[in-house]
Design a binder for these strands. Sequence first.
DNA 1: TATTGTTATACTCTATAACTATA
DNA 2: TATAGTTATAGAGTATAACAATA
Lengths: 139, 139
Amino acid sequence: MTIPQQSSLLRMSTFRLARRLRAQKSDDSVSDAQFAVLATLSIHGEHTLSALAERERVSAPSMNRTVNCLEEAGYLARAEDAIDRRKTNISLTASGIELVEATVSKRDAWLTERMRALTADERDLLARAAELMGRLATQ
Amino acid sequence: MTIPQQSSLLRMSTFRLARRLRAQKSDDSVSDAQFAVLATLSIHGEHTLSALAERERVSAPSMNRTVNCLEEAGYLARAEDAIDRRKTNISLTASGIELVEATVSKRDAWLTERMRALTADERDLLARAAELMGRLATQ
DNA sequence: TATTGTTATACTCTATAACTATA
DNA sequence: TATAGTTATAGAGTATAACAATA
């Protein structure tokens, strides 16, 4: 198999699996865009609005709106920066942490159940592949 | 490593790689939702509106709107069904086929370039993993 | 009566341009 | 003057409810 053929296979399988995983949510009231923000705050901690916009590759006004919705729903909180008063520091509330954990658990449970149907060798192969995929994505 | 740990690794890497791949487009004027429709028509051929809505898991009015945009942009065409005149058959135009091929090429080129940095054994491992991921997604 | 597609309406996500407050 | 955040406005994607045409 040529390298382009291998790439094409990996691209298709990655999209299909990501799509199935994304469908596993713990709460339908939060959109994909909103959940991505909560997940980013969960993994990388407190962000200013513009840092969050840059990381999610959307405009600041767009992120501002999404943050407004999430703040209103009680999943995150804004706090004025003590030093630079133009900035607002955005972080998860207890309720936001809970929602991220519940969704991550649901997705992992869905995948774990399907991985039990594989052999130990196949699971090991997938774990090693995951490490390589991470490297490809950050390259 | 436990099965849940393997699952969690695979989930994170899949999302990261899918995100990077999705960012590789050949034309910024077509949204993700619109491109997904074009890709579905490219892979699975002609669809009625409701078949398309069901496959993309959105409502019929939502799909109708997306199809309107794509029709106006000239990427797909509606045709009346000869037998059942309630139905409209939706298929890609030459321009639509071209756009799908250009985007797929760009994504594959991006991934192929990064896979060249791996060893032959690592690429082979990823190709076998892709097959397993496809199986997990359809299970 | 049921199905297919569409229109009406409303809310979220997206963007650019313009504004406010602070540095 | 520059930067961080926000508001104004407009276009696209999502949904449910209601409608027209056809089976």
